[in-house]
Simulated assay, not measured.
Amino acid sequence: MLTERQRQILKAIVEEYIVHAEPVGSRTVSKREDIGYSAATIRNEMADLEDMGFLEQPHTSAGRIPSHFGYRYYVDYLMGPQRLEREDLLEVRRLFTSQMDALELTIQQTVSILSKITNYTSIILGPEVYHNKLKHLQVIPLNERSAVAIVVSDTGHVDQRRFTVPEGVSLSSIEQLVNLLNAKLSGLPLYRLKRSVYQELYAELNRHVEQYEFLVSVVDQMLAVDVDGRVFTSGTTNMLTQPEFRDLDKVKALMEIFEQTDTVTRLFAANDAGVHVRIGQENSIEAVNNCSIVTATFSVDGRSLGTVGVLGPTRMDYRKVVSLLQVLTDDLSRHLRQLYG
């Protein structure tokens, strides 16, 4: 447990270091309007905060910098919401009030604006399921109890899924079901297929009273489509402007990560709603152990469709990035609902 004075001093040091990227001394902290303590008192508290692992003293400098643990405490307990600059907010609003009906253009513009406003590297991961539409569904029987569903999208993506034919359901019934699905669902985005089945085809499916539950089970298996993630990035060279990355070997290791789609997906994928912050060594890959990653999901109809992420130094402006991602993902979700609702 930190005392209130220690909390104020730690918060001040983190915020000063985020802005200036220089070790923070007691005199600097004492000059802040929100700090009413003498430099000597602050110096003693800084020593205690260092002993507890919240601060570090680089080299022989008299100043301190936050440790990863210090940043974590700041993000979890000290950081309040930040009102975005009016110009930044207007730029986000203009993005989603423009008449962009092409999803890929929307995503590219979003990731570009995010990197521009933050001056960090921005990434958007999104499954092709919200981008592709159903062209054709086909079922190939393997035997009496199993078959393969083949889902073909309008972009040529083909997904195959083996499924079990429930007892009591004939292959002829499945063939009729597939014909019905093709007639009613062709042209719909893949992510809407299941919902459309239940909303629009309930009456027709229910005509097969004795097989209704079994047919629903078949639909669930057939439409459980796996799709590859898509990665959009912007500002990958922004890390070159950060003083922490004057070491070219560090920068090279980071640049190599962005060439590996699987690695980027693993780093930025977020399964839970809300904004998530991973600091330093909380990231699973050594090359980003001196970075922080902030992610937030966007969704349509309650289903998470992708992740917006920002990568920057641990000296990241967390308040600004978190507030920006909250606004941006809300607006992006609303925009996607208008496009595909």
Results as ranks from 00 to 15, higher is better:
81 P>V: 14
127 P>S: 14
225 V>I: 15
181 L>A: 02
245 F>P: 04
211 Q>C: 07
151 V>L: 07
31 K>V: 10
138 Q>T: 06
208 H>P: 04
148 V>Y: 05
107 I>F: 10
310 V>P: 03
97 T>M: 11
334 R>Q: 07
68 H>K: 10
183 A>Q: 01
126 G>Q: 03
194 K>Y: 07
151 V>Q: 00
206 N>P: 04
5 R>S: 13
15 E>L: 08
339 L>Y: 04
120 Y>N: 12
183 A>S: 02
312 G>E: 01
325 L>D: 05
156 G>F: 08
280 G>W: 01
181 L>D: 03
115 S>I: 01
151 V>Y: 02
40 A>F: 09
51 D>C: 09
131 H>D: 00
62 A>I: 11
323 S>D: 09
138 Q>D: 13
165 V>R: 03
150 I>H: 05
175 E>K: 04
261 T>Y: 06
238 N>Q: 12
160 Q>T: 03
62 A>N: 13
244 E>D: 14
196 S>F: 06
238 N>F: 00
217 S>T: 14
204 E>M: 00
71 Y>L: 03
21 A>S: 12
92 V>W: 02
82 Q>F: 08
57 Q>W: 05
66 P>L: 11
75 V>Q: 01
317 D>Y: 07
98 S>P: 00
194 K>G: 09
235 G>N: 13
208 H>W: 15
28 T>K: 13
